[in-house]
Simulated assay, not measured.
Amino acid sequence: MSSTDQHTTYFIPDPSPWPIIGMVSLLVTLFGAVLAMNGVVVGKFIVFGGLLLFAYLLFGWFRDVISENLSDKYNAQVDRSFRMGMFWFIASEVFFFLAFFGALFYIRNIALPWLGGEGYLGATKEILYNQFESAWPSHGPGQLGGEFIPMGAWGIPAINTFLLLSSGATITWAHWGLKQDNQKTLVRGLMATIALGLLFVAFQAYEYIHAYEALNLTLQSGVYGSTFYMLTGFHGFHVTMGAIMLMAILGRSMKGHFSAHNHFAFEAVAWYWHFVDVVWLGLFIFVYWF
């Protein structure tokens, strides 16, 4: 592509099946998850099928975008579009988690005191459930779901906080190596970040098993259980997706696809990873600590 073309053309990809495949894979996965949570055995197999389709989506879409990039189809204007797209994607993720944090705040600071008899609506306590105790963590009316032990902040949550903060440092180290055209530092930093991320997910999986078996903390444990698993579960999913993207970036880095002046794919994943770090700090403080 000539310098003139670089300034006068804008790459538009051919029609792609990947958005539709992505929609179908997520629909199948969520449908299976709903069935599984309601005790339908086939739901687990549907979830597995949906995840396989999603893995196929990631492989195919990453392959196409990498091929377009290596064939020099992207110019500076396309690069700016990618940056704007990633910015707005992360902005949407911020509001996604803010909605759940807002729900947690509303439940703890507004709904529970009201149901416990406080405020101008407190008189309705006698109508709804006059034995309700305004305390957090809440079982719900009548200790819905049975007795459980809340998840403490120290132990696995504190270890996971250290792991994610360390992963933020290692990906910054990798970025520094990339800017210096130091291939070894780039690869080592990415490998360390991926290892820390996967270790985080493994610890969280163990935490969930421990919560179900030893603490009786389940999705049925009132509003505390549902908000706990909603917030930490979605965050764990984001860490998993971030680790997968980092693996793709690691493979490209080992093949020498990036240079000090052309590495937005790396930067986009780094932005996403730092966002995941910040969200976890909020979770650790407001879900585990207070």
Rank of each mutant, 00 (worst) to 15 (best):
I171L: 11
I171E: 01
T172I: 12
A174C: 10
H175E: 09
G177H: 06
D181R: 12
D181Q: 13
T185F: 00
T185S: 10
V187S: 13
L190P: 13
L190I: 08
T193L: 03
A195W: 05
A195D: 01
V201L: 12
Q204A: 06
A205L: 14
A205M: 08
Y208S: 04
I209W: 07
H210P: 00
H210W: 11
A211T: 06
A211L: 08
A211F: 05
Y212N: 10
Y212H: 10
Y212I: 12
E213G: 01
A214S: 13
L215P: 00
L217H: 05
L217W: 06
T218F: 01
T218N: 09
L219R: 00
L219K: 04
L219S: 11
L219Q: 06
Q220S: 12
Q220G: 13
V223Q: 02
V223M: 14
G225M: 02
S226I: 11
Y229S: 07
L231K: 04
F234Q: 03
H235A: 03
F237N: 02
T240S: 14
T240R: 01
T240F: 15
M241F: 15
M241G: 05
M245P: 00
M245L: 14
L246E: 13
I249T: 12
L250G: 05
L250T: 12
G251Y: 07
R252A: 14
S253T: 06
S259D: 04
A260P: 02
N262L: 02
H263R: 13
F264K: 04
A265L: 10
A265N: 08
F266K: 05
F266W: 03
E267H: 07
A268R: 07
A268G: 14
V269F: 04
A270W: 05
W273H: 06
W273R: 08
V276L: 10
V276S: 09
D277Y: 05
D277F: 07
